[in-house]
Structure formats: structure tokens, C-alpha cells
């Protein structure tokens, strides 16, 4: 564990609490893409299957259980409790392509051709593009609630810090994980426009609006 990874994980954790706060405070999931949330639930379930096979640490186990449980809980909130506030008309990104593309990539690029490893690769590739429906929704509405932008920022920042973590681990431990690196770079790059607007608008006290 190094500084970057710890802060990244805490940021990831924070993003989920911010999302829960947004939904509970405004009693609405308006502006949140159900499809992105669904993809994250799939990402966590397929990646953390090793909960049953490999013990890493108590920290690791608790975080994994939290990520799976919270993602399923958010799906429940969006699908049932606050269903009336969700606007499917704005959430029209075709996730079939993301799922199929990630699966194909996982079948080609994996550390071992066994179901667990293929699903791990699948989750890494799917995570890298899982934010697309959310960003697409944002581009359609052209604006967002400030708390929603904090959520997206924390979610994007977490993987950006993982890039620092991977550089750190490579330098000091010789740790190499090419698939996670490439996916992490793609994931962070997808946020670049968002980061720019977040920095120039939200952090200067203005509303998040697309130019």
C-alpha cells in the first residue's frame, strides 16, 4: 500500500458516498445514468469473485464487499425507490457494445485462459468505459447538479491516482500489470474533458455547464 493507492481507494469510496448523499438529499436520481451504475455493479461482481478464492487482507475484503453491496443498493434505489425521478430518455447510450467489446478484449487479453481471469480482464476493460453512459447523459443535458459533478470527479480521480500508484509500484517493486495500466490510462483519458470543465467552472464556484 502506498500513498497514491490509499488516497485513490478513499476517493473511490468517497464517490459512492457522494452519490448516495445526492440521491438521499435531493430524493432524486435525476442526472445519474442507470446504465453506468449497472455497468459498475457488473464490474465489481465480475472482478471480486476472488473473494471466495484468495485472501489479500481485511482491508481488501471489506472494500470489495462494500463496493459490491453499495453498487447493488444504488441500482435498487434507482430502479425502485426513486424510479419516478429517473429519465430513461436521457440515458440512451448503447451499453451492449461496451459489454461485447470488453468481453472480446478479455478473451484475447488475459493473464490466463480460465473463467476467473477472463472475468477479471473483462471487469478491467468494462470499468474503463463504464462512465461513458454517464458522460453521454451529461452531454445531452448540457449541465449537472454540483454534487453530481463532485461524484464524477471523485470517480475519475480515483483511477488517475491509480496511474501514480502503478508508476510507484513499478519503480519500487517492479510490479507490472499491463492490462490494468492501459485500461486505466483509457479510463482517465475519457474524463479529461470533464476534468477541464470541472476545474474551470465548478471549482470556481460556477454551475457545471457545457460550453
Amino acid at each position: 500500500m502506498n500513498f497514491f493507492r490509499l488516497v485513490a481507494d478513499l476517493m473511490h469510496l468517497a464517490s459512492i458516498f457522494i452519490l448516495l448523499l445526492k440521491i438521499q438529499k435531493t430524493r432524486s436520481c435525476a442526472g445519474i445514468s442507470f446504465k453506468t451504475q449497472l455497468l459498475y455493479a457488473i464490474v465489481f461482481v465480475t472482478r471480486y469473485l476472488d473473494l471466495f478464492t484468495t485472501w489479500i487482507s481485511l482491508y481488501n475484503t471489506i472494500m470489495k464487499i462494500f463496493f459490491i453491496a453499495s453498487s447493488v443498493y444504488i441500482l435498487y434505489l434507482m430502479k425502485y425507490k426513486f424510479r419516478a425521478t429517473y429519465d430513461p430518455i436521457l440515458d440512451t447510450f448503447r451499453i451492449e457494445f461496451l459489454l461485447a467489446g470488453s468481453l472480446v478484449l478479455a478473451l484475447i487479453f488475459n493473464y490466463d485462459f480460465v473463467p476467473m481471469e477472463i472475468l477479471w480482464s473483462f471487469s478491467i476493460f468494462l470499468e474503463s468505459v463504464a462512465i461513458l453512459p454517464q458522460l453521454f447523459m451529461l452531454s445531452r443535458t448540457g449541465e449537472a447538479e454540483t454534487i453530481t459533478t463532485h461524484y464524477i470527479f471523485a470517480l475519475g480521480g480515483y483511477r488517475a491516482l491509480y496511474l501514480c500508484n502503478w508508476l510507484w509500484r513499478y519503480i519500487f517493486d517492479g510490479h507490472v500489470d499491463v492490462y490494468a495500466w492501459v485500461a486505466g490510462i483509457v479510463q482517465t483519458a475519457l474524463y479529461s474533458d470533464f476534468f477541464y470543465i470541472y476545474y474551470t467552472k465548478v471549482l470556481h464556484g460556477k454551475k457545471f455547464e457545457l460550453p
Partner: peptide
């Protein structure tokens, strides 16, 4: 294979 990585990250 011997290129298996232990996935110790989240």
C-alpha cells in the same frame, strides 16, 4: 501459466 498476476488491488 507463470505470468499470472495476483490481483491485490481493488
Amino acid at each position: 501459466g507463470d505470468c499470472i498476476i495476483i490481483h491485490d488491488e481493488l
